[in-house]
Design a protein around this nucleic acid. Structure first.
Ligand SMILES: Nc1ncnc2c1ncn2[C@@H]1O[C@H](COP(=O)(O)OP(=O)(O)OP(=O)(O)O)[C@@H](O)[C@H]1O
Length: 780
DNA sequence: CAGGCGACTGTTTTT
DNA sequence: CAGTCGCCTG
């Protein structure tokens, strides 16, 4: 093959994939084999070698962050190659995003062909949950689990069924039971002009199916489609791809990459068999297999191979690499969750002190967020900076959601869910009763919630489209205090909307938000409540800053949305994995799900215990598929590691208020024992000491984590012998912690070894219990 | 209607 | 443990 510069840094199979002729293609390959890299190069190849205009390309990634990175790399590839492109049209951006963000964009533009009004909003999981809860309560079905109901509705939507279509085909007892609940749910969301995540996909698909001209336009717009992580597409996503790529006379320029062994989102409808389905739907599909792994050492790959071969019904693959040999994979058997975390922190500290690895090289990946707690404490004790992905997201915080709810309601006058959230913040005497009456008015008067509010406050002439007899049938129920409270709020919203649509396209979303927070009294309430809410104010300030700085994608003009509307859309679609990296060096803590597609030189996977991984919920169903998905999850985690991999487990952990005992995961038994080095921690545990001693006591033992050379530097001097024998801290004292900053002592306990356990309410970090010897608290 | 307190319960993973 | 619910009081 004559070598094109774009192909220079690819192996033979990768080159073949990148330079395939236009037509349906599927790249099937194991982890670390360069799938994402191939996809990115393919984009550049299409533009450069196939003369495809950039804006004729649609590329789908799994997260927004991955989309950003892919765009960046593709542009770099193109820039380094062609200096002077053929002109403006060629330079228009390619569409790269997640299925959800692409569908949102389409529905935003084409809203007239959908059941929604302009300025529809996306509801988050909390809103979904509260809607379902209310519905279940109203149907005396409160003991139904709202998560299960939502999952069932989600499944219905993945089949493309609206509530009435679902009801029409329901035959099983469960479906018949679900149908009216789904109907109510759909009704509430529509009444609020709101879509959930599944609606974004389903309504995009329905839009295409129901409007040939719209479909034709998008087919013409994106003749070239590329999809990353295809093994985790769901039914609707598959149909969307098929609809856009396969039609008479289409180029069928579809390029997907995936790995059935890395499918880990079945719980939300993903179907790894979509890879095989493609072969049936596109008979001329070319398949390229990439075999060589560029990420990991053979030691790590051997462990991965050894594990995944226990899954049935998969195409056998044997991962191999030409990378240099590395360390054996280590399995640590810890006494408890605390000592497990402590081991990880010590090991991390050693690696960092050695200088062989930096913070950004190291990640910890666990099955559930609950495991992060013990780890956080251990890292704090060892003064190792960490970044937590996805646990309490910035955009999930109460004050952030409140602030956004103000904006949402102003943008979407039908949004009663957001109104309910903020109408009484700060407290202005509008309680549940008043709100319920207002919603009743909305329904009786046939108005938006916003207009209903206006009519209630200023009478029926205040809005344009009120049915003539509606007021007589249902006069306003508000009088006295409730009415005055509503009027105050109504005039505020009127002023805000006035400003919003006067400045409109020129508005600064951040300044506007700041104004709303100020004039609503929301900010003042937080200021008044003092220290404990200081961090909330900081968060709000940050949000204001983010809103001001936010720059929509360059093709946003076609939407004709103002900056507030664009910002709302952006934050609704942002995900855990997208959170901004700050520049400080920190190690990363995240779930195995969030680790998909990433790679780190050093990976720790704690909690490799039966009932955690595989999780007991997966075991409970007794479904082999569920266990296999758990196995894939561990497989994904293992294959993130480039050079060092540590699996750890613990005999017992403190979970939801009590100590639970654990056995090691069945997955550990499946891995060839010759591939793992086993260690015990604390080491003395093996010689007869009870394992009931927690990690805190273990701190006293200055045992090194292992015999490997990279652990030779002691990171933590451990508790000092000079700890005072008398309590130094009393409740009410102000103290200062090197990491947590200032706080107030809540309580303190003197320990047998003379050390002191102090509970402090930190201003920034909340309540923590620290050991004086380690924390080095100073009176402040 | 606001806010506090005690009882109770229990997401595994997320766009 | 920690978030949520409902009851109680002011
Ligand atoms: N031909 C190559 N030469 C050198 N490095 C390569 C080559 N191909 C891929 N790599 C590197 O291997 C690593 C894995 O690549 P990439 O992330 O594209 O793999 P992947 O198959 O998408 O992985 P996964 O499925 O695990 O997410 C990256 O660091 C990439 O730069």
């Amino acid at each position: 093959m004559t070598s094109h510069p774009l192909l220079a840094k690819l192996n033979t199979a990768q080159r073949e994939a990148v330079s395939l002729p236009i037509g349906p293609a599927q790249i099937m390959a194991g982890p670390g084999s360069g799938k994402t890299r191939v996809l990115t190069h393919r984009i550049a190849w299409l533009v450069q070698e196939m003369d495809v205009a950039r804006n004729r390309i649609l590329a789908v990634t799994f997260t927004n962050k991955a989309a950003g990175e892919m765009r960046q790399r593709a542009l770099e590839l193109l820039e380094s190659q062609d200096q002077d492109g053929p002109g403006f049209e060629w330079r228009r951006p390619m569409a790269i995003g997640t299925f959800h963000s692409i569908c949102a964009r389409i529905l935003r533009v084409e809203y007239e062909q959908t059941p929604y009004e302009r300025n529809w909003v996306i509801v988050d999981a909390d809103d979904q949950k509260s809607v379902i809860k209310e519905i279940l309560a109203s149907r005396a079905a409160s003991n139904d689990n709202e998560f299960a109901v939502l999952a069932d509705i989600s499944r219905a939507k993945d089949r493309g069924l609206t509530a009435s279509e679902f009801a029409a085909q329901a035959s099983s007892v469960l479906d018949v039971r679900l149908a009216p609940i789904y109907a109510d749910y759909e009704k509430v969301l529509r009444a609020n002009n709101a879509l959930d995540f599944d609606d974004l996909l389903m309504h995009a698909l329905r839009l295409f199916r129901g409007n040939q001209d719209v479909l034709d336009r998008y087919r013409a717009r994106w003749p070239h489609i590329l999809v990353d992580e295809f093994q985790d597409t769901n039914g609707t996503q598959y149909e969307l791809v098929k609809l856009l790529a396969a039609y008479p006379d289409s180029l069928q320029s579809l390029f997907v990459v995936g790995d059935e062994d890395q499918s880990i989102y079945a719980f939300r409808g993903a179907n790894r068999r979509n890879l095989a389905r493609l072969r049936r739907d596109f008979p001329s599909l070319r398949t390229v297999v990439l075999e060589e792994n560029y990420r990991s050492t053979q030691q790590i790959l051997d462990v991965a191979n050894s594990l995944i071969q226990h899954n049935r019904g998969r195409t056998h693959k044997e991962l191999f690499t030409g990378n240099p040999d590395g360390q054996q994979v280590v399995l640590v058997d810890a006494a408890g969750g605390d000592s497990e975390a402590d081991w990880i922190a010590r090991s991390t500290a050693s690696l960092l002190n050695d200088g062989a690895f930096g913070h950004e090289d190291i990640a910890v990946m666990y099955r559930t967020h609950a495991l992060s707690r013990a780890l956080e404490e251990a890292f704090l004790n060892h003064r190792i900076a960490y970044r937590l992905i996805g646990a309490v997201r910035f955009y999930d915080r109460a004050e952030i959601k409140d602030a956004l709810a103000f904006l949402r309601f102003l943008v979407n006058p039908l949004d009663a869910l957001s109104l309910a959230r903020i109408i009484n913040k700060p407290a202005r005497g509008i309680g549940a009763k008043t709100l319920a009456r207002l919603i009743e008015c909305r329904d009786q008067w046939g108005l938006s919630i916003s207009d209903a509010l206006t009519v209630a406050c200023r009478g029926p002439e205040a809005v344009a489209h009120m049915a003539p007899d509606a007021w007589e049938r249902h006069p306003s129920p508000f009088t006295g205090r409730a009415l005055r409270s509503l009027q105050v709020f109504e005039s505020l919203t009127a002023e805000w909307r006035e400003r919003l649509y006067t400045e409109d396209l020129t508005i600064d979303a951040g300044l506007f938000l700041a104004d709303v927070l100020e004039s609503s009294g929301y900010r003042a309430r937080l200021v008044a409540s003092g220290e404990q809410d200081e961090h909330r104010l900081e968060n709000l300030d940050e949000l204001v800053g983010l809103a001001s700085e936010f720059e929509p994608e360059s093709d946003a003009e076609e939407l004709a949305l103002n900056p507030v509307e664009l910002f709302l859309e952006h934050v609704s679609l942002i995900s855990a994995a997208d959170e901004r990296d700050d520049d400080e060096p920190k190690i990363t803590l995240m779930t195995l799900h969030n680790a998909k597609g990433l790679e780190y030189p050093v990976v720790y996977i704690p909690g490799v215990d039966e009932d955690l991984l595989p999780h007991f919920r997966a075991r409970d169903t007794g479904d082999r598929e569920d266990i296999e998905e758990e196995r894939r999850l561990l497989y994904v985690g293992i294959t993130r590691a480039e050079r060092l991999l540590f699996l750890t487990r613990a005999d017992q952990r403190f979970v939801s208020g009590r100590t639970m005992r654990y056995r090691e995961s069945r997955f550990l038994n499946e891995i060839d024992p010759g591939l793992l080095i086993r260690e015990t921690w604390p080491q003395w545990r093996a010689v007869g000491q009870g394992s009931s001693l927690g990690g805190r006591q273990a701190d006293a033992y200055r045992v090194r984590p292992s015999r490997h050379d990279w652990s030779s530097i002691e990171a933590n001097p451990g508790p000092t012998a000079a700890a005072p024998a008398r309590s130094q801290f009393k409740a009410g004292m102000n103290v200062r912690h090197r990491i947590f900053g200032s706080g107030k002592v809540i309580g303190s306990k003197l320990l047998a070894d003379g050390d002191e356990e102090v509970t402090v309410a930190f201003r920034q970090h909340g309540l923590k219990t620290v050991l004086n010897s380690i924390a080095g608290l100073e009176p402040a």
